[in-house]
Design a protein around this nucleic acid. Structure first.
Lengths: 226, 226
DNA sequence: AAGGAAGTGGAATGTGCTTTCCACTTGATG
DNA sequence: CATCAAGTGGAAAGCACATTCCACTTCCTT
């Protein structure tokens, strides 16, 4: 359905077949568990659900970040792909709106991904490459949408992560008890992006700043470390 | 500066003076610590900083929720008061915008309050009474702002907590590295509230739903419990 | 100034999670 | 089918935090 080959396929890992089978089980379980419980689930629980010992889990994925990026690799690819796809929409403004909704919907459907989209994992090469690709394509998307006249001129690429953080905030509180509330937020946000409405806005963040913000420790915002 | 008496004053607590002094120290320290580190700081750390033993802290405030609501009582009062004040603005739309900005700024200035505004504490009577008063006055505020023509007709009271959750999401990620980003979000949100721009929105949440969402356990969203 | 109620600190206990380590098992290879 | 590198599980150690408990101290009363 898209251009480059999806990063699926049972690529040869050089592992013994039983080990590879375990690796797959771990990934499958991690995806499910992160989706429903968020990326902070105990490593122990993932191991248990996957039917392996914690030792096995740790040997394959020494840090939580390694497991997270491995588990979300394909979703991250899909994320990048969505921007590429949005570029093919004949109506750039419609493409923009659809894209924002679609990504926020991806967040809404996966508690882990909700968080992952607001963080960076500097050591996960492919992962961050996908994010960069998404950003690059998104930048093109907004340029077009501005040129075509739908999108306000002062919208910047960095506004997208801001929207994702806002959506994450709504989702973490409401996803159980009021699972559609995020749509309401996104409705407001998208309307605020329309050129038609534009009033001046506070300055956008510098890209460097956003990067640093998203860099926060994997083990979520731990309180003060003295 | 406002109508009812602020809940400050060294009201007689029936405690021995040394005990009362400790209680005050605990509250002061809790306010500072929650503000900079969020409401999840270890009880132990608050006790240490206040120069008391954990035992003392626990006897005075048996649960974290008790301490949190005690520490934020005056801020909660100020929160409610802000809505009351906003009603005195001769321009209802301006009053609305100022109010939303002001509350979001309160969140930005206090990591603990950021979270507190997205939760309910059913057992803290005064605390929840203040919240209700804020909601009630806010409802009046939006009715006026709609009547005066600035605010879109489909804005509802429940949108405010949604905005607060969104802002909380942005703040938890950016408050260290990019502390002004929340202003950008709020800029978008407020513009989206303008009647001038209004396009149909997804349905708002039911009040009951929002309540349940904000009811989540005090010990933050713990992962899965099996 | 003495007695007792009120208040205190912090050691102790318990829980939940991370992370390491190694004796044992299993699949691949000749 | 024997060998052994690769792989495994789970016990154990360590850490951070919550929460209880009670021998001791401090204030207040008379």
């Amino acid at each position: 359905m898209s251009s480059p080959p999806a990063p699926e396929a049972p690529r040869h890992t050089g592992l013994r077949i039983d080990a590879e089978r375990n690796r797959q089980r771990i990934l499958t379980v991690a995806r499910e568990t992160f989706a429903t419980h968020g990326i902070d689930v105990p490593m122990e629980e993932i191991a248990r659900r996957a039917g392996v010992g914690v030792g096995t889990l740790y040997r394959r994925y020494p840090t939580r970040g390694d497991l997270v990026t491995a588990a979300f690799a394909t979703k991250m690819y899909a994320y990048a792909d969505a921007a590429r796809q949005a570029l093919t929409d004949p109506d750039p403004w419609h493409g923009f709106c659809t894209y924002v909704e679609q990504i926020c919907a991806m967040q809404a459907g996966d508690r882990g991904f909700t968080t992952v989209l607001t963080m960076t994992f500097p050591t996960a090469k492919q992962f961050e490459a996908d994010r960069s690709r998404a950003f690059a394509d998104f930048t093109t998307l907004i340029d077009r949408a501005k040129a075509a006249g739908g999108l306000r001129a002062d919208f910047v690429t960095e506004d997208m992560p801001v929207f994702l953080m806002a959506n994450a905030g709504v989702l973490t509180v409401t996803s159980d008890a009021a699972p559609d509330v995020w749509r309401r937020l996104v409705g407001y946000l998208i309307q605020a992006c329309a050129a038609r409405t534009a009033q001046p806005l506070p300055d956008p963040p510098a890209p460097r700043q956003m990067y640093r913000a998203m860099l926060r420790a994997t083990h979520h915002q731990r309180a003060g470390k003295r």
